[in-house]
Design a protein around this nucleic acid. Structure first.
Lengths: 123, 123
DNA sequence: CCGCATCCCTCCCGATACTG
DNA sequence: CAGTATCGGGAGGGATGCGG
């Protein structure tokens, strides 16, 4: 067995789809783990929210990045945009079924991070 | 109740430590969900690896980013660097107990991403 | 209230070359 | 083998202003 093959990634249940450079997993992974993507998914997992609520809730996000993030996640079918044709506009965002599946798997991670951050980062 | 307070984040089990802008959670979150951080943690969760094995295994990572990522994760106490004073140098990387805890929570997420990426990203 | 467009700048990251 | 040093391009992201 050659050295280059010794540590080939072959994870049971993770059918070598994460590491190859040009695979969809990398793209989706980048969207989901993007700086703001995680926080948006986490926020919407708690409750349906309006644009301005998201802005307040996710402290530090700019309008540009909120728009960009929402658009990406919507295109990925993880977030649903519900617009009501009234004046002034009333738009809500919530998770699709797939977005919720993702949220459920993101949640334990976030809880661990929240619980351990103080100790790890110069608490 | 003012509008600005309506959707205050108060997640049971996630003691509002993720959303505030200047909190350690954000920092740790950025490290963990960084483009290469996830992949390094995932790879080391499978097995101890040497530098060159990581380079091959995480397709597309540059030496600079591998060094930077490993250094950050090591400083966070998630990755352990084991160097043996021989010539040529022999260095191995593996997860600390905390790194493994994190890996265990990262794993379901990665498996879901791997399983659903094709369908979501222009499958 | 909910966005889109534009400018502009920082700093992330890749490429390359070099060392112990 | 296991890194460090340096440089430069380009994307990420903030600020501002406009439109429906």
């Amino acid at each position: 067995m050659k050295v280059s093959e010794r540590k080939r990634i072959d994870i049971p249940g993770l059918a070598d789809g994460v590491f190859p450079a040009q695979c969809p997993s990398r793209t989706l992974l980048d969207h989901v783990t993007s700086k703001w993507g995680v926080l948006v998914l986490l926020a919407l997992g708690i409750d349906t929210m309006r644009w301005s609520e998201l802005r307040r809730c996710i402290e530090g996000i700019s309008e540009k990045m909120l728009a960009q993030t929402l658009k990406t996640l919507e295109a990925d079918g993880l977030v649903r945009r519900v617009a009501q044709p009234v004046v002034p506009p009333h738009v809500e965002y919530n998770l699709t079924a797939e977005g919720r599946e993702l949220h459920d798997r993101l949640r334990p991670l976030m809880e661990w991070v929240a619980a351990n951050a103080d100790r790890i980062i110069e608490g």
